[in-house]
Nucleic acid binder design. Sequence first.
DNA 1: TTGCTTGTTGGACGATCGTACAACAAGTGC
DNA 2: GCACTTGTTGTACGATCGTCCAACAAGCAA
Lengths: 208, 208
Amino acid sequence: MSSKPAFTRAERAYTRAEPDARRLSLVEACARVLAREGVAGCSVRAIALEAGVSPGLVGHYFPGIDALVAETYAHIEAQVSAAIDAALHAAGSDPRARLEAFVTASFAPPIASGELLATWIAFWSLVRSRTDIARQHDEQYAAYRARLEGLLAECGLPGPELRRAAIAITALVDGLWLELCLSPQAFSAEEAGAIARQALVALTSTGR
Amino acid sequence: MSSKPAFTRAERAYTRAEPDARRLSLVEACARVLAREGVAGCSVRAIALEAGVSPGLVGHYFPGIDALVAETYAHIEAQVSAAIDAALHAAGSDPRARLEAFVTASFAPPIASGELLATWIAFWSLVRSRTDIARQHDEQYAAYRARLEGLLAECGLPGPELRRAAIAITALVDGLWLELCLSPQAFSAEEAGAIARQALVALTSTGR
DNA sequence: TTGCTTGTTGGACGATCGTACAACAAGTGC
DNA sequence: GCACTTGTTGTACGATCGTCCAACAAGCAA
């Protein structure tokens, strides 16, 4: 007679997952916990509960909760980057339209969501104390700015001004985004986008 | 014969302080702990140790550590405001010079210090979960922007443009300041100031 | 000097934290 | 069917957290 399994499929003790898939589910659970409960509620146990796994599993995939937060930040940053890519693609080939689409997308869902703020804050709080995370931040910031410089170059902005303009526009978008998340009633996402686009025109015509 | 005190002055068990002075010493201790150890090391015990008092005293002056962090934020914000006031006063009466001094001071010590970042982050992390702290943030942000609008009005910026320009400049300064604290090697404080001043010219001449 | 108010101490308390680890079971190869 | 690898569980552990509170003492008034 065939062997009788201790559990049917429905009451199986647990199911194994592909390592990458499990890591991703933990990252997504971490993002949800941060969005819902903020930095204060972001613990190993809360994340494991959110992901539907045992607390010990978190330690099996990440050397510490800092590393999980850092990977969560990178994951969301990649989503943001993808959303901007989609907006750039939809904007067509006109350089000016692409530049405008860049800032417009920065204030549209899913980027301009207050739920992302806690993830950013949790990551920022690690930058000054952990050199590896500081390096990760530097790299992602540099990549973000490099892409913006590319867009500005397409618009015919002269080389010497690329760096300054990209730093300024990045800071402007970040500052607007931060304030939009912190006090949503001060101004709307639409107004933030309008302000950024208007500033874009001013900042890309300086020196001439 | 005169009474004999249990302690000489040097070995006195503790000394009482004016309530306001004690609150201030706790606030300053909280700021130092945040600057030195970051948000993760900001505990009641660490603050009490830094202030040279017993842990229980913190609870005697503040209903919780959140309130202490909020007051620390307000205290540093007041110092920042005072530093800007001093810069404005030193700039004389020319409206344009005063506006430039406003942004220049934002990237000079003691404002542009990475040590302040942890205090800002600790405060931001409380905004979304505590309505009273959210209101405090709204008020301080509104006050900051109102003063900037005043400076812009002095420069002859038309009324309808005041709001947008103030929001944009505030966001630009905040974004530059944040990035300067997070990755100091990406650009210097001097470059941040130069970028902000250049953007100032561009942003205050739009529409004309 | 005496008594009173209250700022201050210092430890106890329960909760929660991150981490470590032995036991278990799912899936794979033989 | 059996052994083996390893993803996964669940708990135990020590440390640290915020809060609480009874006892103490500093300073003031009488």
